[in-house]
């Protein structure tokens, strides 16, 4: 019962050489945070990077809404995120037992970024964020904001909890702690976090948009192939 059967034979269809493989550097580029504008503009989609320094994370929709409202009211966030790195990573944060010490982050892992599409452009522009990320990408409004502000999007491995946890050095701060752990605004000191893939760069290139458009363009051919392969209904 526990022995897996033979593997599916036809995992792939299109012959090699049909497409030009996506650009990618062989080397993993290491980045020390915070990044300056020049360093962000040097990144291209397909690059693999690791990060060391301070990152701020949250996957709370209420958190994003509150951040935008705070900026729109002309008030300061509890931490200075200007020019910083803000990622859709969820973390399990344990408060110090007496409530006074530094909390501990047990692990972290990316979440789907598109559900924050509405909130990201004002955050990217308002804070001049240099790096955003998570997994699954952001929409074209964010891509435009990122090009304007000088910001790149990093795709972290979904299901990368154990590996990503290895990079956590300590919790620098945890704010809005009335929220559940993953909704808090948590700043972590990380060392060699990644590798992550640059999936949207600061030049208006988005792997996600390219792939979406390309898949849609391929659909007529894909459907035609299905029609050819399908035997007539008995």
């Amino acid at each position: 019962m526990s022995t897996p059967g033979p593997l599916p034979r036809a995992l792939h269809s299109s012959p090699p050489g049909e497409d030009t493989p996506m650009h990618s550097n062989d080397t993993v580029r290491h980045l020390d945070l915070p990044l300056d504008l020049e360093a962000v503009r040097a990144l291209s989609v397909g690059d693999l990077v690791t990060l060391s320094g301070d990152i701020t994370i949250s996957i709370g929709l209420p958190t994003h809404k509150r951040m935008v409202q705070t900026l729109q009211a002309g008030e300061a966030l509890p931490i200075d995120l200007r020019g910083g790195a803000f990622f859709h990573l969820s973390s399990y944060v344990v408060d110090a037992p007496d409530g006074t010490g530094t909390p501990e982050a047990l692990y972290m892992n990316p979440s789907t970024s598109t559900r924050y599409d509405a909130y990201m452009p004002p955050l990217i522009r308002g804070l001049g964020l240099r790096l955003v990320g998570g997994k699954g990408g952001l929409d074209q409004h964010s891509v435009a904001a990122m090009q304007e502000a000088g910001c790149a999007y990093l795709s972290f491995l979904g299901g990368g909890c154990t590996l990503l946890a290895e990079s956590i050095e300590r919790v620098v701060s945890s704010h809005w702690n009335e929220y559940i752990s993953q909704f808090r605004l948590v700043t972590l000191r990380v060392k060699s976090l990644g590798p992550a893939t640059v999936a949207i760069d600061a030049h208006g290139n988005s792997i996600y948009e390219d792939l979406r458009v390309r898949a849609q363009e391929r659909m007529p051919q894909i459907l035609a192939t299905l029609n050819q392969q399908r035997k007539p209904n008995p």
Partner: peptide, 27 residues
Amino acid sequence: DMEKRLLMAINSMGFGPMGTGGDTTAM
């Protein structure tokens, strides 16, 4: 038959692992 051709069709879309491009969109 449908399983085989749909697997090939999905893997022709190009989304790839983690949706950052590639031949393997479905297992």
